[in-house]
């Protein structure tokens, strides 16, 4: 069974997120900065009565900062217990990808974004063109590993 994915853009690259992890997509009207957080934490936004931290994916992926545009979107994702917004250049498309279409990312996909890409897929666009999309590892991008202290006995 093919699964649904949300496609978003950063610079010229296309990424996907599992649609089942996506709670909301909103345009970006600025966030309240939180002093003392890493530069890639764009700040806090209210979404439907919730306060959600937003990660600026450009900065998280080592890309230069740009001013938000009308196309900028915050994709609110649920990752485990956490709800986090991802600020991206644009997000307009939903696509189906069959599980066999997903491959391990090439090993050269390292550097700043090491481990951020879970798999890659070649898909065919609406006008027949071939596109490469990258499935991101949400937990890694929002820094899930090693954050919680285990206080159980």
């Amino acid at each position: 069974m093919s699964e649904l994915y949300v496609v978003f853009k950063l610079d010229d690259a296309e990424y996907v997120l599992q649609a089942s992890d996506v709670l909301e997509m909103e345009s970006f009207g600025g966030a309240t900065r939180v002093p003392g957080t890493p530069p890639y934490v764009a700040g806090l936004i209210h979404i439907r009565g919730r306060v959600v931290p937003v990660v600026d994916l450009r900065l998280r992926f080592g890309l230069p900062r740009i001013e938000p545009t009308l196309d900028s979107r915050v994709i609110v994702v649920q990752s485990g217990e956490r709800t986090v917004g991802l600020l991206v250049d644009s997000a307009r498309e939903i696509m189906k990808i069959a599980p066999e279409g997903l491959q391990a990312p090439p090993s050269w996909m390292g550097g700043e974004g090491d481990g951020f890409v879970k798999s890659v897929a070649h898909v065919e666009g609406s006008s027949g063109e071939k596109r490469l999309v990258m499935l991101i590892n949400c937990a890694k991008v929002i820094g899930q590993e090693g954050i919680y202290v285990d206080e159980r006995n």
């Binding site: 939180v34 957080t37 934490v41 806090l44 209210h46 990660v55 986090v84 820094g143």
Partner: peptide, 22 residues
């Protein structure tokens, strides 16, 4: 959220402008 846990900042509130205030 661990992304925004900072000493000295205990939470957020809404003063009526729809944006979080620390």
């Amino acid at each position: 959220d661990p992304l925004v846990k900072v000493t000295g900042i205990s939470g957020s509130t809404d003063l009526g402008d729809g944006r979080p205030t620390l």
